[in-house]
Amino acid sequence: AQVHVDGVTYDFDNPEEAEKFAREMAKRKGGTVEVKNDQWHVE
C-alpha cells in the first residue's frame, strides 16, 4: 500500500500500517486523508 504525503510516496507491505501512518500524518498536519485507487493521500 502506498501513502502520499506532500509529494513523497511511502511504501508499506501492510495496508493496516499504511492506514495508521496516513491517519497519524494527517493528524500532525491538521489535514485530511483520502483513499484513491487503494492509495492513501494525506492533504
Results as ranks from 00 to 15, higher is better:
residue 1 A to E: 03
residue 1 A to W: 15
residue 1 A to S: 13
residue 1 A to H: 14
residue 1 A to D: 05
residue 1 A to Q: 11
residue 1 A to N: 12
residue 1 A to R: 13
residue 2 Q to K: 13
residue 2 Q to N: 04
residue 2 Q to W: 08
residue 2 Q to P: 02
residue 2 Q to A: 07
residue 2 Q to S: 11
residue 2 Q to G: 02
residue 2 Q to V: 11
residue 3 V to Q: 01
residue 3 V to K: 00
residue 3 V to E: 00
residue 3 V to L: 02
residue 3 V to S: 01
residue 3 V to H: 01
residue 3 V to A: 03
residue 3 V to M: 01
residue 3 V to N: 00
residue 4 H to P: 00
residue 4 H to K: 08
residue 4 H to G: 01
residue 4 H to Y: 12
residue 4 H to Q: 08
residue 4 H to M: 10
residue 4 H to I: 13
residue 4 H to D: 05
residue 4 H to V: 14
residue 5 V to M: 13
residue 5 V to C: 15
residue 5 V to Q: 01
residue 5 V to T: 03
residue 5 V to Y: 09
residue 5 V to E: 02
residue 5 V to W: 05
residue 5 V to S: 06
residue 5 V to R: 02
residue 5 V to P: 00
residue 5 V to K: 01
residue 5 V to N: 02
residue 6 D to A: 07
residue 6 D to M: 07
residue 6 D to K: 04
residue 6 D to G: 09
residue 6 D to R: 03
residue 6 D to F: 11
residue 6 D to T: 02
residue 6 D to P: 01
residue 7 G to Q: 03
residue 7 G to W: 02
residue 7 G to R: 02
residue 7 G to L: 03
residue 7 G to S: 04
residue 7 G to P: 01
residue 7 G to E: 03
residue 7 G to A: 03
residue 7 G to D: 05
residue 7 G to Y: 03
residue 8 V to H: 10
residue 8 V to A: 09
residue 8 V to Q: 09
residue 8 V to L: 10
residue 8 V to D: 06
residue 8 V to I: 13
residue 8 V to E: 09
residue 8 V to G: 04
residue 9 T to V: 13
residue 9 T to M: 09
residue 9 T to H: 05
residue 9 T to Q: 09
residue 9 T to E: 04
residue 9 T to G: 03
residue 9 T to Y: 08
residue 9 T to W: 12
residue 9 T to A: 07
residue 9 T to S: 06
residue 10 Y to G: 01
residue 10 Y to R: 01
residue 10 Y to S: 01
residue 10 Y to D: 01
residue 10 Y to F: 10
residue 10 Y to V: 02
residue 10 Y to L: 04
residue 11 D to F: 15
residue 11 D to T: 14
residue 11 D to L: 14
residue 11 D to R: 13
residue 11 D to A: 12
residue 11 D to G: 08
residue 11 D to I: 14
residue 11 D to P: 08
residue 11 D to M: 14
residue 12 F to A: 00
residue 12 F to D: 00
residue 12 F to P: 00
residue 12 F to M: 04
residue 12 F to E: 00
residue 12 F to L: 03
residue 12 F to V: 01
residue 12 F to K: 00
residue 12 F to H: 00
residue 13 D to G: 07
residue 13 D to S: 11
residue 13 D to A: 11
residue 13 D to I: 10
residue 13 D to Y: 07
residue 13 D to E: 10
residue 13 D to N: 10
residue 13 D to L: 10
residue 13 D to M: 09
residue 14 N to V: 07
residue 14 N to M: 05
residue 14 N to D: 13
residue 14 N to R: 07
residue 14 N to K: 09
residue 14 N to Y: 08
residue 14 N to I: 07
residue 14 N to Q: 07
residue 14 N to E: 08
residue 14 N to H: 09
residue 14 N to A: 07
residue 15 P to E: 10
residue 15 P to T: 09
residue 15 P to S: 12
residue 15 P to Y: 10
residue 15 P to I: 08
residue 15 P to A: 13
residue 15 P to V: 11
residue 15 P to F: 09
residue 15 P to K: 12
residue 15 P to M: 11
residue 16 E to T: 09
residue 16 E to N: 07
residue 16 E to M: 11
residue 16 E to L: 11
residue 16 E to K: 10
residue 16 E to Q: 12
residue 16 E to S: 11
residue 16 E to D: 12
residue 16 E to W: 13
residue 17 E to N: 05
residue 17 E to K: 06
residue 17 E to M: 06
residue 17 E to I: 06
residue 17 E to A: 10
residue 17 E to Y: 04
residue 17 E to T: 09
residue 17 E to F: 03
residue 17 E to D: 12
residue 17 E to S: 08
residue 17 E to R: 05
residue 18 A to F: 01
residue 18 A to N: 00
residue 18 A to S: 01
residue 18 A to L: 01
residue 18 A to P: 00
residue 18 A to Y: 02
residue 18 A to D: 00
residue 18 A to T: 00
residue 19 E to L: 07
residue 19 E to M: 08
residue 19 E to Y: 07
residue 19 E to I: 06
residue 19 E to Q: 06
residue 19 E to S: 04
residue 19 E to D: 07
residue 19 E to A: 07
residue 19 E to V: 05
residue 19 E to N: 02
residue 20 K to N: 11
residue 20 K to F: 08
residue 20 K to P: 00
residue 20 K to A: 13
residue 20 K to D: 11
residue 20 K to M: 12
residue 20 K to G: 06
residue 21 F to P: 00
residue 21 F to I: 01
residue 21 F to E: 01
residue 21 F to S: 00
residue 21 F to H: 02
residue 21 F to T: 01
residue 22 A to N: 01
residue 22 A to G: 02
residue 22 A to I: 02
residue 22 A to C: 07
residue 22 A to P: 00
residue 22 A to Q: 01
residue 22 A to F: 02
residue 23 R to M: 11
residue 23 R to E: 10
residue 23 R to D: 08
residue 23 R to L: 11
residue 23 R to W: 12
residue 23 R to G: 05
residue 23 R to A: 09
residue 23 R to S: 07
residue 23 R to N: 12
residue 23 R to F: 13
residue 24 E to R: 05
residue 24 E to D: 10
residue 24 E to K: 06
residue 24 E to L: 08
residue 24 E to H: 05
residue 24 E to Q: 06
residue 24 E to F: 06
residue 24 E to G: 02
residue 24 E to W: 10
residue 24 E to P: 00
residue 24 E to I: 05
residue 25 M to V: 13
residue 25 M to A: 09
residue 25 M to T: 11
residue 25 M to E: 14
residue 25 M to S: 06
residue 25 M to G: 01
residue 25 M to W: 11
residue 25 M to Y: 09
residue 25 M to R: 03
residue 25 M to Q: 11
residue 25 M to N: 04
residue 26 A to T: 02
residue 26 A to W: 02
residue 26 A to E: 05
residue 26 A to H: 03
residue 26 A to V: 06
residue 26 A to L: 05
residue 26 A to F: 01
residue 26 A to K: 02
residue 26 A to D: 04
residue 27 K to S: 10
residue 27 K to I: 14
residue 27 K to Q: 13
residue 27 K to F: 13
residue 27 K to V: 12
residue 27 K to D: 14
residue 27 K to T: 11
residue 27 K to N: 12
residue 27 K to H: 13
residue 27 K to R: 11
residue 27 K to L: 13
residue 27 K to W: 11
residue 27 K to G: 10
residue 28 R to V: 14
residue 28 R to Q: 14
residue 28 R to M: 15
residue 28 R to L: 15
residue 28 R to Y: 13
residue 28 R to A: 14
residue 28 R to D: 12
residue 28 R to N: 11
residue 29 K to T: 15
residue 29 K to E: 10
residue 29 K to G: 10
residue 29 K to S: 13
residue 29 K to F: 15
residue 29 K to Y: 15
residue 29 K to Q: 12
residue 29 K to H: 14
residue 29 K to I: 15
residue 29 K to P: 07
residue 29 K to L: 15
residue 29 K to D: 08
residue 30 G to I: 02
residue 30 G to K: 06
residue 30 G to Y: 05
residue 30 G to A: 04
residue 30 G to P: 05
residue 30 G to T: 04
residue 30 G to M: 03
residue 30 G to L: 03
residue 30 G to E: 08
residue 31 G to I: 04
residue 31 G to S: 07
residue 31 G to Q: 06
residue 31 G to R: 01
residue 31 G to D: 06
residue 31 G to V: 09
residue 31 G to T: 09
residue 31 G to K: 02
residue 31 G to H: 07
residue 32 T to D: 05
residue 32 T to F: 12
residue 32 T to L: 08
residue 32 T to Q: 08
residue 32 T to A: 06
residue 32 T to R: 11
residue 32 T to S: 09
residue 32 T to V: 11
residue 32 T to E: 06
residue 32 T to H: 12
residue 33 V to Y: 07
residue 33 V to P: 04
residue 33 V to D: 03
residue 33 V to N: 02
residue 33 V to A: 10
residue 33 V to S: 05
residue 33 V to F: 07
residue 33 V to M: 05
residue 33 V to Q: 04
residue 34 E to Q: 13
residue 34 E to N: 13
residue 34 E to Y: 15
residue 34 E to S: 15
residue 34 E to F: 15
residue 34 E to D: 09
residue 34 E to P: 02
residue 35 V to M: 14
residue 35 V to T: 07
residue 35 V to D: 03
residue 35 V to N: 10
residue 35 V to E: 06
residue 35 V to Y: 15
residue 35 V to I: 13
residue 36 K to L: 12
residue 36 K to G: 05
residue 36 K to Q: 10
residue 36 K to S: 10
residue 36 K to E: 08
residue 36 K to A: 08
residue 37 N to E: 09
residue 37 N to Q: 09
residue 37 N to F: 08
residue 37 N to H: 09
residue 37 N to Y: 08
residue 37 N to W: 06
residue 37 N to P: 03
residue 37 N to G: 14
residue 37 N to S: 06
residue 37 N to A: 08
residue 37 N to M: 07
residue 37 N to L: 06
residue 38 D to C: 14
residue 38 D to R: 09
residue 38 D to G: 15
residue 38 D to N: 15
residue 38 D to Q: 11
residue 38 D to K: 09
residue 38 D to S: 11
residue 38 D to M: 11
residue 39 Q to K: 09
residue 39 Q to L: 07
residue 39 Q to N: 07
residue 39 Q to I: 15
residue 39 Q to P: 03
residue 39 Q to R: 09
residue 40 W to P: 04
residue 40 W to F: 13
residue 40 W to Q: 04
residue 40 W to M: 06
residue 40 W to G: 03
residue 40 W to E: 03
residue 40 W to I: 07
residue 40 W to L: 07
residue 40 W to D: 03
residue 41 H to V: 13
residue 41 H to D: 04
residue 41 H to N: 06
residue 41 H to F: 15
residue 41 H to W: 14
residue 41 H to G: 04
residue 41 H to I: 13
residue 42 V to T: 03
residue 42 V to H: 03
residue 42 V to N: 04
residue 42 V to W: 03
residue 42 V to Y: 04
residue 42 V to K: 04
residue 42 V to M: 03
residue 42 V to P: 05
residue 42 V to D: 03
residue 42 V to L: 04
residue 42 V to F: 05
residue 42 V to S: 03
residue 42 V to I: 09
residue 42 V to A: 03
residue 43 E to K: 15
residue 43 E to Q: 14
residue 43 E to G: 10
residue 43 E to M: 15
residue 43 E to A: 13
residue 43 E to S: 14
residue 43 E to F: 15
residue 43 E to L: 15
residue 43 E to W: 14
residue 43 E to D: 10
